[in-house]
């Protein structure tokens, strides 16, 4: 137990990062549940390849990370705008990707 406590301390947890990873874990659980309830079917949207639901979530998350990084590198405005853009991108990929 002591070793586990040391490990968790060394990870230097903060609330925002904890919430982020909890969100990712929740997303994975929801995706697993959806896969059992409604198995995914590959489809072709605006992305240049056929994708499953999991592919679209992955591409959406990856794109969201790049949007935030590009915003930090190129734009001086507050990061909330990048977050709004990332959510829009994520929704677009999930629905039409």
């Amino acid at each position: 137990m002591e070793a586990l406590a040391t490990l968790i301390r060394s990870m230097a947890w903060t609330m925002p990062v904890g919430l982020f990873f909890a969100g990712v874990a929740l997303l994975l659980l929801v995706m697993t549940g959806l896969q059992f309830a409604y198995p995914t079917i590959e489809r072709k949207g605006f992305l240049p390849m056929t994708t499953t639901r999991g592919d679209r979530v992955f591409i959406g998350l990856l794109g969201a990370a790049w949007i935030h990084l590009a915003w930090l590198a190129l734009v001086a405005s507050p990061l909330w705008w990048a977050s709004i853009l990332a959510v829009l991108w994520f929704a677009l990929v999930l629905r039409f990707g």
Binding site: R9, S10, M11, A12, V17, F20, F21
Partner: peptide, 16 residues
């Protein structure tokens, strides 16, 4: 990976 993400948002001198 989770540790690295935590570190990326903090100025770390030690875990405490």
């Amino acid at each position: 990976l989770m540790t690295v993400v935590n570190y990326a948002f903090q100025d770390i001198f030690s875990p405490q």
